[in-house]
Computed example of a mutant assay.
Amino acid sequence: MSSLYERLGAADGIRRIVDDVIANHLLNPVVSVRFRHVKDLPHLKEMAFQFFCMGSGGPQSYQGKDMRSAHQGMNISEQEYLAVMDDIVAALHKHGVDDSSCNEVVAILYALKGEVIRV
């Protein structure tokens, strides 16, 4: 059985997924305002890329802040968190990621919920 990293398309596939995730966020009325005001979108994409790679079993290391520190003071609501998860799942489906792998990603994201919502 291949790793989640490999099933997501390894580095190239994950980079394409992250690009679409951010594009989805920018179009999503629930969270777009948060992403339109990001000063360094390429840096955000790189951190998301590293995070997805590391979290899915890839060889990349994540150089960003821990989730609690990264979202501290943002007062993210459950609705926003779910909207972000929906955007991620939509990007995964767009790239042909199978349902089992999508469910693994959702489980990982759900496990981080307490580190992001209202911290």
Results as ranks from 00 to 15, higher is better:
residue 27 L to C: 14
residue 36 R to F: 13
residue 73 G to K: 03
residue 28 N to M: 10
residue 3 S to L: 14
residue 89 V to Y: 04
residue 68 R to E: 14
residue 85 M to K: 08
residue 28 N to A: 05
residue 40 D to H: 15
residue 114 G to P: 02
residue 52 F to S: 02
residue 88 I to W: 00
residue 51 F to G: 00
residue 47 M to E: 09
residue 38 V to T: 08
residue 111 A to T: 14
residue 58 G to P: 06
residue 36 R to N: 10
residue 65 K to G: 04
residue 14 I to P: 09
residue 32 S to F: 15
residue 20 D to H: 10
residue 9 G to P: 04
residue 15 R to D: 11
residue 70 A to C: 14
residue 58 G to W: 02
residue 95 H to E: 04
residue 9 G to T: 06
residue 90 A to R: 12
residue 60 Q to M: 15
residue 70 A to E: 10
residue 1 M to Q: 13
residue 25 H to S: 11
residue 55 G to Y: 00
residue 18 V to Y: 03
residue 105 V to Q: 01
residue 99 D to I: 08
residue 82 L to A: 07
residue 93 H to C: 04
residue 72 Q to D: 08
residue 71 H to G: 00
residue 102 C to R: 09
residue 12 D to M: 10
residue 35 F to Q: 09
residue 88 I to H: 02
residue 34 R to F: 04
residue 15 R to P: 06
residue 30 V to K: 07
residue 108 I to M: 08
residue 7 R to F: 12
residue 59 P to N: 09
residue 91 A to F: 01
residue 11 A to P: 09
residue 69 S to A: 14
residue 96 G to P: 07
residue 80 E to H: 00
residue 92 L to E: 09
residue 68 R to C: 06
residue 52 F to Q: 03
residue 107 A to C: 06
residue 33 V to W: 08
residue 69 S to D: 15
residue 51 F to A: 00
residue 11 A to W: 08
residue 105 V to P: 01
residue 69 S to W: 01
residue 89 V to W: 01
residue 83 A to I: 14
residue 13 G to C: 11
residue 98 D to N: 15
residue 50 Q to K: 11
residue 65 K to T: 07
residue 61 S to A: 11
residue 106 V to H: 03
residue 22 I to T: 12
residue 78 E to F: 06
residue 69 S to C: 06
residue 69 S to I: 07
residue 101 S to E: 05
residue 28 N to G: 03
residue 59 P to I: 11
residue 52 F to A: 03
residue 32 S to A: 07
residue 82 L to K: 12
residue 67 M to P: 11
residue 27 L to T: 11
residue 84 V to D: 07
residue 81 Y to W: 09
residue 83 A to M: 10
residue 15 R to G: 08
residue 49 F to A: 14
residue 108 I to C: 00
residue 80 E to V: 01
residue 48 A to F: 04
residue 44 L to R: 02
residue 48 A to Q: 06
residue 73 G to A: 14
residue 69 S to F: 02
residue 72 Q to S: 04
residue 55 G to C: 07
residue 86 D to N: 12
residue 79 Q to P: 00
residue 65 K to A: 14
residue 56 S to C: 05
residue 88 I to Q: 09
residue 112 L to A: 13
residue 7 R to T: 12
residue 20 D to M: 08
residue 82 L to S: 13
residue 45 K to Q: 14
residue 73 G to C: 10
residue 39 K to V: 15
residue 20 D to W: 00
residue 95 H to V: 14
residue 37 H to Y: 09
residue 68 R to D: 10
residue 96 G to N: 10
residue 16 R to Y: 11
residue 11 A to L: 08
residue 12 D to R: 07
residue 89 V to K: 02
residue 52 F to G: 00
residue 52 F to D: 01
residue 50 Q to P: 06
residue 44 L to T: 07
residue 107 A to W: 02
residue 38 V to K: 06
residue 115 E to T: 09
residue 92 L to I: 05
